[in-house]
Amino acid sequence: MHTGGSSGWALVALCAAAGAYCLLRMRGGTGEQRREAGGEALMGFGMAAMAVPPAVFSPPPWTWALYAAVFGAAGLRALWAARDRPHHLHHLVGAGAMVYMAVVMAGSPGPAQGHGHGGSGAAPLTGALLLYFAGYVLLGGARLVPVAAVPADGPAAGWTGRPELARACRLSMGIAMLAMLLTL
């Protein structure tokens, strides 16, 4: 979702940093943890790309279909994973929100594929997603505050194996999703 000026660049930096940290998390942990970190990295980098200010880069119209296809596939993967692990439903909602934003952007008028719903009638879905991510951010923030120092799994784990950093990463992506949805 294109945002303007310095707030757009702050959102790009936040999402790209979260994506990069998630890539680093893929180096350790179990197979399931690596897959989850990979999905979060995809989300972070995808959100960063969508947040680039339109004055810098106005993507061609086919880009929005590509976003919708990539995040639609990520949503299907999350749905498949959620059958055994319900916490993946959040990934399904996040991927669905990315597909939704791509579809809205594709249908928006203007050279930069501008903002707003126009007459699409999609505002109730935006409101529902805003409520979901606001709740997710509040709950994630509450879970983050009391986290005590957890010893790493040894010297090799380093800062990529720290659960509070992973929670902070998820929280920052939730806040970024809220910001992006507000620009619709």
Rank of each mutant, 00 (worst) to 15 (best):
M1Q: 07
M1H: 10
H2L: 05
H2F: 09
S6R: 08
G8A: 05
L11E: 00
V12N: 01
A16D: 07
A17Y: 03
A18K: 00
G19K: 03
Y21V: 06
Y21I: 05
C22A: 15
L23W: 11
L23E: 03
L24P: 02
R27I: 10
G28S: 15
T30W: 10
T30P: 11
G31L: 14
E32V: 14
G39D: 07
L42C: 08
L42F: 08
G46T: 11
A48K: 10
A51H: 09
V52W: 06
V52I: 15
V52K: 08
P59S: 13
P61K: 00
T63D: 02
W64M: 11
Y67L: 07
A68K: 12
V70I: 15
G72F: 06
A73P: 04
A74I: 07
W80L: 08
W80S: 12
A81V: 08
L89N: 07
H91S: 14
L92R: 03
V93G: 10
A95H: 07
A95P: 09
M101I: 13
A102H: 01
A102G: 03
A106Q: 08
G107I: 09
G110P: 10
A112F: 14
Q113V: 00
G114R: 14
G114E: 14
G114M: 12
G118T: 13
S120H: 12
S120L: 15
G121E: 10
L125T: 13
L130M: 14
Y132W: 15
Y132A: 06
F133A: 03
A134E: 06
G135Y: 05
L139V: 13
A149K: 01
A149E: 09
V150W: 04
P155D: 02
A156M: 01
A157T: 09
W159A: 06
P163E: 10
E164A: 09
A168E: 00
A176K: 02
M177P: 02
M177S: 06
A179P: 06
A179N: 04
A179T: 04
M180Q: 07
M180Y: 03
T183H: 14
L184T: 14
